[in-house]
Amino acid sequence: MMIDSHQHFWLYNPERDSWITEDMQRIRRDFLPADLEPVLRQNGIDGCVAVQADQSEAETLFLLQLAEAYGFIKGVVGWVDLRASNLYDRLEFFSQYEELKGFRHVVQAEPEDFMTRPEFIRGVRQLAAFDFTYDILIYPNQLKAAFHLVREVPEVSFIVDHLAKPYIRDQKIRTWSNYMTEIAKHPNVYCKVSGMVTEADWQHWKPEDFQPYLDVVFEQFGPDRLLFGSDWPVCLVAAEYDRMKSILENYVAPWGEEVRQKVFGANAVNFYNL
Rank of each mutant, 00 (worst) to 15 (best):
E199K: 01
M2S: 13
N86F: 10
G123I: 02
A69M: 05
E249W: 13
W79S: 04
D113F: 14
G75W: 06
V216I: 14
A67T: 07
L11R: 14
G71V: 08
R29V: 02
W232M: 10
D30H: 14
N178M: 06
V124W: 13
S194I: 01
G75Y: 07
I20M: 10
F271Y: 15
E37V: 11
L274R: 02
W255F: 12
L82N: 06
F158W: 07
E22I: 00
V189A: 03
D209M: 06
F130V: 00
S177A: 15
A67W: 10
M244P: 02
Y12F: 15
P38A: 07
D30W: 11
E152L: 10
A109I: 03
Q171F: 05
D81L: 03
P212N: 10
V193R: 05
W19N: 05
P140S: 03
W79V: 02
D131P: 03
A34P: 00
F147G: 06
G229L: 06
L226F: 01
E15N: 11
F271Q: 08
K206S: 10
Q96V: 02
A200R: 02
L91A: 12
L91W: 14
V216E: 08
G71R: 13
K206Y: 12
N13D: 15
D23N: 13
N13P: 01
R169W: 12
K245D: 02
Y251M: 03
V234Q: 03
A53D: 00
F31A: 00
D201T: 01
W202V: 05
D23T: 12
T21G: 07
M244R: 07
I138V: 15
W10F: 12
Y179G: 00
H8F: 03
N178H: 13
E59Y: 05
R174W: 04
P111R: 15
V259M: 09
R117D: 08
A253W: 15
D89P: 00
G102R: 11
A238K: 14
V160K: 03
N267V: 00
E208I: 12
D4F: 12
Q42A: 15
I136K: 08
R243A: 14
Q52P: 04
V259T: 13
E182P: 01
R225Y: 13
C48M: 05
A146E: 00
E258M: 12
G222L: 08
Y251W: 03
G229P: 15
V189Q: 11
K172A: 01
A184D: 06
D131Q: 14
Y179Q: 08
G123N: 07
F120R: 09
L64F: 04
Y139K: 11
Y167E: 09
A145C: 00
E98T: 10
D224P: 02
V259A: 12
P223R: 03
V189I: 02
M196H: 09
A67K: 09
R104L: 04
M1L: 11
F228H: 07
G229Y: 12
R16N: 00
C48G: 06
A129M: 08
L63M: 13
Q211W: 13
L143R: 06
V80N: 02
L11V: 08
Q203K: 12
D17M: 03
Q42V: 05
W10Y: 14
V237T: 15
C48N: 10
D54N: 14
C48H: 09
L163I: 13
N13A: 08
E152N: 05
L32V: 07
N13H: 13
F62H: 09
L32M: 04
L64T: 05
A109E: 12
R125D: 00
K74I: 07
Y139M: 11
F218I: 11
K192Q: 08
